[in-house]
C-alpha cells in the first residue's frame, strides 16, 4: 500500500507538469482553433529566458515578471500576428505545419545559439524530503502539484467569473453570435494567446527543476501536453489538469505493475479506448458534427 501511494503521489506530481503544459494547449484550441505543435518549445523558451535573466543577476521574481512580459509580446502577440492570424482561415493544416516548423526552429536555435547540454534550474520550493510513514514526498512534488491546481482554478475562475473571461468563452463557443453581441472578438482571441504565454512562463518556472533546462525538453513535453489535453477533454480547461494527472499516475502504475517497457503503451491503450467510448474526453462536452 505504501508502495502504491508512493507511485500514486509521484505520478500526481509528474502529471501536474503535463497538465500545466496542456492547459495553454486547450485554451488556444478553444478560442481560436489553433493547434500549437510548438507548445513544448513555448515552455522551453521562457525556461532559458529565466536562466538568462538569473545569470545577469536579476532576482527570480523580477526575472519571472520580465519573462512574462517578453513572452506575452513574442509568444502571445508575435505568434498570433505572425502565424495564427494569417493561417487560421486556411484550416488547421497550415497552422499545424507552421507550428511544427516553429518548434524545429526554436529547438535548434537554442541548441546552436546557446547550448546542447541540460542545465540545472533552481526550484521555487526548495529540495526537502518529507516522510509520511513509508511514503517519501519532496517539497518540489507538493509545490508543483499545488501550483498547478491553483493555476487551473485561477484560469477557470477568470473564464467563468469575469466579464472578459465570459466574453472569451462566448468567442470560443460561437464566434458569430459573439460578434452580434458586440464582443471585440480579435481582442478576446489576443487575450487567449497572452494567457497561453503567461501560463507557459509559469509552467517553465515550475517544470524546469524536474525537466531540466534543455533545448529539446519541449519535444516530449509537447507530446505529453497534447495527450493530457486530449484525454481530459479538449474543450474544457479543467480537463487538461485531470488529463495530465491521469497520464502521470497511469504511467507510474503501469511501469510498476504491468510492464516497465510498455508503460507508455499501456497508458495510451487505455486512453485510446476511453477516447473511442467518450470522444469528447473525460470531462469535455460533446460537440455535434456540423454539416
Amino acid at each position: 500500500m505504501a508502495d502504491f501511494l508512493q507511485l500514486f503521489i509521484s505520478g500526481l506530481a509528474t502529471g501536474s507538469i503535463y497538465a500545466l503544459a496542456g492547459l495553454g494547449f486547450t485554451l488556444l484550441w478553444q478560442t481560436s482553433g489553433t493547434i500549437n505543435f510548438a507548445q513544448g518549445e513555448f515552455v522551453m523558451l521562457p525556461t532559458f529566458a529565466l536562466l538568462a535573466f538569473s545569470a545577469i543577476g536579476v532576482p527570480l521574481p523580477a526575472a519571472f515578471a520580465l519573462t512574462c512580459v517578453l513572452a506575452v509580446v513574442v509568444l502571445g502577440w508575435g505568434f498570433k500576428r505572425g502565424i495564427a492570424d494569417p493561417l487560421l482561415r486556411f484550416g488547421s493544416m497550415p497552422v499545424v505545419v507552421a507550428t511544427l516548423g516553429l518548434s524545429i526552429a526554436l529547438r535548434n536555435g537554442v541548441r546552436a545559439g546557446y547550448s546542447a547540454e541540460a542545465h540545472p534550474f533552481p526550484s521555487l520550493f526548495g529540495d526537502d524530503v518529507f516522510r509520511i510513514g513509508r511514503v517519501a514526498v519532496t517539497s518540489v512534488d507538493v509545490g508543483t502539484l499545488a501550483a498547478a491546481l491553483v493555476l487551473v482554478l485561477a484560469t477557470q475562475a477568470f473564464l467563468a467569473r469575469t466579464v472578459t473571461g465570459r466574453a472569451m468563452q462566448a468567442v470560443a463557443q460561437d464566434t458569430t453570435s459573439a460578434v452580434v453581441l458586440g464582443i471585440d472578438v480579435p481582442r478576446m482571441i489576443f487575450y487567449t494567446f497572452a494567457i497561453n504565454a503567461i501560463l507557459a512562463c509559469a509552467a517553465a518556472l515550475l517544470i524546469a527543476p524536474t525537466y531540466l533546462a534543455k533545448f529539446d525538453m519541449g519535444e516530449s513535453l509537447g507530446t505529453k501536453a497534447f495527450f493530457a489535453a486530449v484525454i481530459g477533454g479538449f474543450n474544457n480547461s479543467r480537463g487538461a489538469l485531470l488529463g495530465g494527472l491521469v497520464v502521470g499516475v497511469c504511467e507510474n502504475l503501469a511501469a510498476a505493475y504491468v510492464s516497465a517497457s510498455y508503460k507508455d503503451a499501456v497508458a495510451l491503450a487505455i486512453f485510446i479506448v476511453v477516447i473511442l467510448v467518450r470522444p469528447q474526453g473525460l470531462v469535455g462536452q460533446r460537440v455535434e458534427r456540423k454539416v
Binding site: I83, G101, A105, N108, G109, A112
Partner: peptide, 9 residues
Amino acid sequence: LTAFGVAVI
C-alpha cells in the same frame, strides 16, 4: 535546422 524551420514557416 533553424533555417529549415524558418523556411517551413
